[in-house]
């Protein structure tokens, strides 16, 4: 039952060699082993979106993704967005638009937005909403989150 497996995780361009319990989620390994605590846990069952990270560019709920599945894959977390001490445009837009309140859902939504921006695709307002609909936010009523996402997509 208590089976361990060696894996390589590439998190924000840095490789970590780890031995993980095959039952451990990627979320638990990122948070508890590697201390990427910007990855938040809101429900543990893939409902709320707070734990979203990018796995090979795809927004993924890390709470329902086993760590062993991530072996060799490129993972990006909120901690990897700042470059040379400068916030990414998406991060700055979330601040300037007032899209942050308690901040617990913020990292997940910023990661999904980052993936949308990097996809190079165009999105209608309805499509933006659909893309963000996997994230719950109880503070903002999504108004400023929508504005920040839209601004990030327009900014390119």
């Amino acid at each position: 039952m208590n089976e361990m497996k060696k894996i390589n995780l590439i998190v924000n361009d840095k490789t970590y060699q780890l031995e993980v319990d095959i039952r451990e989620s990627l979320l638990d390994v990122l948070r508890n082993r590697l201390h990427f605590t910007g990855v938040k846990e809101g429900c543990s069952v893939g409902e709320c979106g707070a734990c979203t990270v990018l796995i090979d560019g795809v927004p993924t709920s890390s709470c329902i993704y086993l760590a062993v599945f991530a072996d060799g894959k490129k993972i990006r977390t909120i901690e990897g967005l700042e470059k040379d001490g400068k916030l990414s445009k998406v991060q700055q837009n979330f601040i300037d638009e007032g899209a942050i309140q308690c901040g617990f859902c913020t990292p997940g939504i910023v990661m999904t937005t980052t993936a949308l921006v990097e996809s190079g695709n165009k999105f209608t307002d309805e499509e933006i909403k659909r893309e963000i609909s996997g994230h719950f936010c109880r503070c903002t009523g999504y108004q400023k989150i929508f504005d920040a996402v839209k601004k990030s997509l327009d900014d390119k």
């Binding site: 948070r31 508890n32 201390h35 990427f36 605590t37 910007g38 990855v39 938040k40 846990e41 977390t77 909120i78 901690e79 967005l81 700042e82 916030l87 991060q91 979330f94 601040i95 300037d96 007032g98 942050i100 309140q101 901040g103 617990f104 913020t106 990292p107 910023v110």
Partner: peptide
């Protein structure tokens, strides 16, 4: 409309919540 004081710490994932302390 000054920006929230904690906005940068929250948008970078550096803001520490209860479960972020070990």
């Amino acid at each position: 409309s000054v920006n929230r004081l904690d906005a940068v710490s929250k948008v970078t994932g550096k803001a520490k919540y209860t479960n972020d302390f070990f």
